[in-house]
């Protein structure tokens, strides 16, 4: 078996490949569903219904997609410059920490000022968290995959320490959780009485902004150049290291917004289960979108739909909702293969 390079794929092919990847994912996971003693068709139907079959389901999917859009954008931005940020999870939690530190009454500001201030502070904190690994990479050649990945555990333990200590809610009955943020620091709900909040709008706007940055600005041009060919970028005078720093700030900042939006828009306080791995799922989201910022919105909704739908399905079909994790993981693998196939032709013999 051998790979031969192919000319650039057409737009149709580019759209077709993610769909083919999803079809392959369904095919592969249906084996597991069969093993669990259920019918794949009815399980997938229930997942789809649970994800988008009613207003409640749809809103729940969009709510779940919100943090995934942020972490997906964070990963897409970083990966575009070949800065392998695996630490969106940590940056998310830092965003959450900043939100409760500033949002529980420390800053007596009106909502229209307080919320932007918290957002900017959270972004700065998340960006600085990724700046460390970026500096280690550019100055000493330390692999950022390792540093960002390990920072996830360090930060989670750090958050645990805060929640057992200075940030612990005195009224929390001993649970490791922070105080609730004050009303002025909360993102309002889009529909009264439903869980979907304005964090979703912020996420969509962020996706558009990131798209504009990547397509239209000098910084986006520099990031793409550095990602495609750092040596070539350096040769033509692009300040490669500085571009990587800016990328780190932007990527870390976007991931931190996920933490901000979850605390401020949905949960109200910070706990250790703020994120069921949104930082890691962001990698899948970004890859499914082939790092396109607008595609991230679509793929985040898709991935969120699988999680939400699988929860609903498992209640009815008695198939464990873990199937969602398998589906998402499998879709990453099939997508990677699909991307490979858009660029290379496989020759058997």
């Amino acid at each position: 078996m051998r790979l031969e390079p192919k000319p650039a794929p057409s737009l149709g092919m580019t759209l077709l490949f993610p769909l083919a990847a999803i079809a392959a994912t369904l095919l592969l996971t249906s084996l597991l569903v069969l093993a669990a003693g259920a019918s794949p068709l009815s399980v997938f139907y229930l997942v789809a219904k649970g994800a988008a079959g009613s207003q409640f389901a749809l809103l729940e999917t969009l709510t779940r997609a919100t943090p995934l859009i942020f972490t997906g954008l964070a990963v897409a931005v970083a990966f575009r410059a070949k800065l392998w940020n695996i630490g969106a999870e940590a940056q998310l939690y830092i965003g959450g920490v900043v939100t409760v530190v500033l949002g529980t009454g420390a800053l007596p500001l009106p909502s229209v000022i307080l919320i932007p201030v918290i957002m900017l502070a959270a972004m700065l904190a998340g960006g600085l968290l990724l700046l460390g690994p970026a500096i280690l990479k550019t100055r000493f050649g330390v692999d950022e995959v390792v540093t960002t990945l390990l920072l996830n555990f360090i930060v989670l333990l750090f958050v645990s320490m805060l929640l057992e200590g200075v940030l612990k809610d005195p009224m929390g009955l001993g649970w490791p959780q922070s105080q609730k943020v004050i009303a002025d620091a909360q993102l309002p709900r889009i529909i009264q009485g439903k869980r979907l909040h304005y964090g979703f709008v912020v996420a969509i706007v962020s996706a558009i902004v990131v798209w504009v940055i990547m397509k239209k600005t000098v910084l986006g041009y520099e990031m793409r150049a550095v990602g495609h060919n750092p040596e070539g970028a350096r040769f033509v005078g692009i300040p490669v290291n500085r571009v990587l720093m800016k990328t780190a700030l932007l990527s870390g900042g976007l991931a931190a917004l996920a933490g901000f939006s979850e605390v401020s828009g949905l949960k109200g306080n910070l706990t250790l289960d703020l994120s069921p791995g949104y930082g890691y799922s962001g990698i899948v989201v970004a890859m499914l979108a082939m790092l396109n910022p607008l595609g991230v919105v679509v793929s985040a909704i898709f991935v969120a739909g699988i999680f939400v739908g699988a929860d609903a399905m498992s209640r009815i079909a008695k198939v464990p909702s873990y199937i969602a994790d398998v589906m998402v993981a499998t879709s990453l693998l099939t997508m990677v293969v699909a991307i490979l196939l858009t660029r290379f032709r496989v020759r058997w013999k």
């Binding site: 000098v218 041009y221 520099e222 495609h228 060919n229 070539g232 005078g237 692009i238």
Partner: peptide
Amino acid sequence: PEDRHAVGTIGDMSVTENVIAERYA
């Protein structure tokens, strides 16, 4: 440059993007 592919150009970017590379700013 000696190496057109690795240094002189950024292969996956367009002709336009490569031509302005020394003066994009």
